[in-house]
């Protein structure tokens, strides 16, 4: 599966490389759009020293960790949210007559390698925050774990978004609220959001495990909402559950398509 994915992605990369000027233009512009959210954080902290009790560098750590996972998924799987377009254009049928999972085919369709620029940006912010903060070295092992967890959760969200579009062919924008909304949510310490919203983002959609719960562990802080300490380590389990649900939803979506013939 991974092999097929990489081969497909590589073909699109080669195609993009045929126009190097456009490619680098897109890399630069990708970075600029990606930097807008960062600029917002910097403007906020030009007006205050703490937000919800967190310093600028702590927020940048949370931003960097979540966005590293998000931008990687944006690069590799975000094309899944174009399913409604494929259904309307009839190209969905084409994916189904090939002997490879439609998930891989759709995720790689028109793969845009230039999006890697945003990954670099997110990585750089994370690197800066790690350098600026005085963190406990024995807790740093959590950082790769949280980025991995984040990748699984965002991938699952995009898969869910794709599955949902089999139903919402006329209103695919709804799913952006979950994918890009999750990106927006995880850029800030979750305690700035209302208690109910955070409960939803912990127990319904496990967005809190992308960077908040494990991030609290890395930063050596207690949860202002008082969740118990073991919750910091539940990320991988929560991600796995969401991934399984997303997989089921995806299969249902494909099955529905094949039985309604839309």
């Amino acid at each position: 599966m991974v092999r097929t994915y990489l081969l497909l992605a590589w073909t699109w990369t080669r195609a993009a490389a045929a126009y190097p000027a456009s490619f680098w233009l897109l890399v630069v512009f990708g970075c600029v759009t990606g930097a807008l959210d960062l600029a917002v954080i910097l403007v906020v902290f030009a007006n205050t020293t703490t937000l919800g009790g967190f310093s600028r560098d702590e927020v940048l750590f949370l931003y960097g960790a979540a966005n590293l996972a998000f931008t990687l998924c944006d690069l590799f799987v975000s094309n899944l949210d174009r399913i409604s377009q494929h259904i309307k254009a009839g190209t969905m049928d084409t994916f189904l007559i090939r002997p490879v999972s439609p998930w891989i085919q759709i995720a790689t369709d028109r793969f845009v390698p230039a999006r890697f620029g945003r990954v670099v940006l997110a990585g750089a912010v994370l690197g800066y925050a790690l350098g600026a903060l005085d963190l406990d070295g024995r807790r740093l092992w959590m950082i790769p774990v949280m980025v991995g967890t984040g990748i699984v959760i965002f991938t699952a969200l995009w898969t869910l978004a794709g599955a949902l579009q089999f139903l919402l062919t006329d209103a695919p924008e709804v799913t952006s609220a979950f994918t890009y909304g999750s990106q927006q949510l995880t850029q800030y310490p979750l305690n700035v959001y209302g208690r109910d919203l955070v409960r939803g983002a912990t127990y319904v959609l496990p967005l809190a495990f992308i960077n908040w719960q494990p991030g609290l562990y890395v930063l050596g802080r207690d949860d202002p909402f008082g969740t118990p300490g073991f919750m910091r380590f539940l990320g991988p389990a929560a991600a796995l559950v969401l991934a399984l649900l997303a997989g089921l939803a995806w299969r249902q979506g494909i099955r529905r398509y094949r039985s309604t013939g839309s």
Partner: peptide, 29 residues
């Protein structure tokens, strides 16, 4: 089986024909 839809293409719109064929080779192993 091989399938051809006359009304729409199963090829990749933005890729050179030869690259489309390479993809087919990979997909069908």
């Amino acid at each position: 089986i091989g399938v051809v839809f006359g009304q729409r293409t199963t090829l990749w719109w933005d890729l050179p024909l030869r690259d489309s064929f390479d993809l087919i080779r990979l997909l069908y192993k």
